[in-house]
């Protein structure tokens, strides 16, 4: 009857979004009056028992070299055996890149009702319904699940990380791992930067910045704040910035705590990717820019004058002279 949380990892590191999934699963288990356990396929260079502080009592681990890289078919077979073996009734994933490949596959295999992109704990007062983000963040839907086993994938940055006391017990699980069908040839990760999808703070620039040579101040502000950088679609299309920075309807959807938009008009397709941000700040010289309607804070002014002053103020705040 327990809640089972899937722990995603890459480069032997646990993803932050999985920690959020653990906190969510643990809160759901408390709500249902049951226990929260987690499952890890493969191995990581971290102290697994310490994950107990996020609220799980046990971590099942299936070892195997083939489990260091995602092969959704292979992983699904393992999880489909693990779920009944652990007695889990709800399985929680992060709706991150790997979760998007794996969670729906497992749902199809187990004929389990599936909600992707959950943004809140299920309503279990009568039945079981989960609030999810739809229409690119412009609305929410409440999805009812009627199956015995239920699968939820949680949107990153939608549930707070809380920690308490406790160590988790590590329980090796003996499940035969088949041969992978997907061969990972290479993987590149931009190092030294905060990945956009995991960033809590994001500084973003649009066409108002005129050209790639003017991104220095965007990068400096981001660096000072420990933020990731992003951009609007025309900026990526013009190759002013790399494609993996493009946010919006056709780019990446993010939900950071802070989104600073500099020289971006706030077209509906741009907002679709950023409107779940908790605090939105807009710097735009046009007081009529639509972005101000979606913003919490704003400055009507020339970015080339405003941003350097913001940088100075952040330096002062952080005691950097």
């Amino acid at each position: 009857m327990s809640v089972l949380i899937y722990i995603d990892h890459s480069e032997a590191q646990i993803k932050k979004s999985s920690l959020e999934a653990i906190c969510y699963g643990a809160a759901l288990a408390r709500q249902l009056g049951t226990g929260a356990e987690a499952i890890l396929l493969g191995t990581v260079n971290e102290d697994l028992a310490a994950l107990g502080k996020y609220g799980v009592t046990r971590i099942y681990q299936v070892a195997g070299e083939a489990l260091q890289h995602l092969d959704s078919g292979l992983f699904t077979k393992v999880l489909a055996e693990a779920v009944p073996a652990t007695g889990a009734k709800v399985v929680v994933f992060s709706n991150n890149m790997n979760g998007k490949a794996l969670a729906p596959r497992l749902a199809a295999r187990l004929k389990a009702g599936f909600v992707s992109g959950a943004v809140a704990l299920p309503d279990t007062a009568s039945g079981f319904s989960v609030k999810k983000s739809v229409f690119s963040g412009k609305a929410f839907a409440h999805i009812s699940l009627k199956t015995d086993i239920k699968i939820i994938s949680l949107n990153p940055n939608s549930f707070p990380l809380t920690t308490g006391e406790g160590k988790a017990e590590i329980a090796p699980l003996n499940i035969a791992v088949g041969a992978p069908k997907v061969k990972v040839v290479s993987a590149t990760q931009s190092t030294g930067q905060v990945p956009l999808t995991e960033a809590e703070l994001v500084v973003s620039g649009g066409r108002g910045l005129k050209g790639p040579e003017n991104w220095g101040m965007v990068e400096e502000l981001a660096k000072l704040l420990g933020a990731a950088t992003a951009c609007s679609r025309p900026v990526a299309d013009a190759h002013w910035r790399p494609h993996n920075e493009h946010v919006g309807q056709t780019g990446i959807a993010i939900a950071p705590n802070l989104y600073i938009a500099i020289g971006i008009s706030g077209a509906i397709q741009h907002l679709a990717g950023v409107n779940r941000s908790k605090t939105i700040v807009v710097i735009n010289k046009d007081p009529e820019a639509p972005f101000f309607k979606a913003a919490d804070y704003g400055i009507v002014g020339d970015a080339f004058e405003v941003v350097p002053k913001m940088i100075e103020a952040v330096k002062k705040l952080k005691g950097i002279v």
Binding site: K111, G113, A139, S144, V282, F292, A295, Y297, G298
Partner: peptide, 19 residues
């Protein structure tokens, strides 16, 4: 296996605070 029980629009923003 699932059905949409209802939809909901997000609450309107309080309005921008301009500096």
């Amino acid at each position: 296996l699932t059905s949409i029980a209802s939809f909901e629009l997000p609450p309107a923003k309080a309005g921008v605070k301009l500096v």
